[in-house]
Nucleic acid binder design. Structure first.
Ligand code: SF4
Ligand code: SF4
Lengths: 145, 145
DNA sequence: TCTTAAACAGATTATTTTATCTGATTAAAG
DNA sequence: CTTTAATCAGATAAAATAATCTGTTTAAGA
């Protein structure tokens, strides 16, 4: 198998997009998130807890508790979520798994891959949650299909 | 962690690049490959066996046996190796892990990610082993560093 | 106050991926 | 013909990732 983001990170991104689509202040329970996104409840709960520690999400305990975004969606970039969960190592290491990735000792794909890597990084840095609200709502609406 | 290719695939690509750098006909033992690339011998051996089944590599048993490319390096594209090991699912599925990836029900990143995905695919399709010989040799030479 | 529903913390299990082992087969070379 | 060094096949072990469980704390609302 080939993967870009870990499951943790995928779920984290989905959940955070969902929270932003719900509205900035709104508190949503892990249970609802899990049901709407069809992902394991306990798992997404753990992930959101860790994002709470990272300061991207805030949580409220007790009945009617749940999670919400800790900042305005315009201030949360996708890269922030990725950095918090998977880290940024991928943007600094070799596609081919060779050690010592650097322009001094480039691997055979350095030139071409480096460009893609930068593009991906730029994309994740430029995209903020608010920009994706419309599309997120649309995707979630058709999720059962 | 975040990954593009599995370890299997990384090692497979490295090994195949190494074989091509060695010269088309030359037979190299798994032992030598493993030592030069600093990867587990038994593992790379298994991987090359599977690539033999796929028809990209050919093998010779017995003393002085080993592996060599089954075709001219100009005829082996990187995508062929990836397809044989990791498969092509990544080029057909959602970065965010949403189900039902398709232009009909695009996920929030579809537009931007789709472009990167295509670029990556093109790159792997265009690059053949022979084009990377020089750079591979150079990388391997500095591998200990 | 009591019940209920939530986050939270930490342990545990399950699954997948990565790596190793064991023995069989094959072929080169003395 | 025997030794040696290799692939190969299949089982096994180790590590990482994904998922679940168990119990505690917290707060809302009846
Ligand atoms: S191509 Fe070279 S420099 Fe680029 S990631 Fe691979 S090893 Fe590193
Ligand atoms: S962006 Fe949409 S269409 Fe593209 S991979 Fe993700 S779900 Fe699929």
């Amino acid at each position: 198998m080939t993967v870009i983001f870990s499951k943790k990170c995928e779920y984290g991104l989905q959940a955070v997009l969902f929270l932003s689509a719900k509205g900035t202040g709104e508190v949503v329970s892990a249970d609802e998130i899990a049901k709407r996104l069809n992902i394991p409840k306990e798992f997404v709960s753990k992930i959101l807890q860790s994002l709470t520690e990272s300061g991207l999400v805030s949580s409220r305990k007790g009945k009617a508790g749940g999670f919400s975004l800790a900042k305005h969606p315009a201030l949360i970039r996708l890269i922030d979520v990725v950095a918090a969960i998977d880290g940024l190592a991928i943007f600094n290491s070799c596609v081919l798994g060779f050690p010592n990735c650097s322009p001094d000792h480039p691997c055979p794909l350095h030139e071409k891959w480096g460009q893609l890597r930068s593009s991906a990084y730029s994309m994740l840095t430029e995209q903020t949650l608010d920009q994706l609200k419309e599309k997120t709502l649309n995707k979630i609406a058709h999720l059962e299909a």
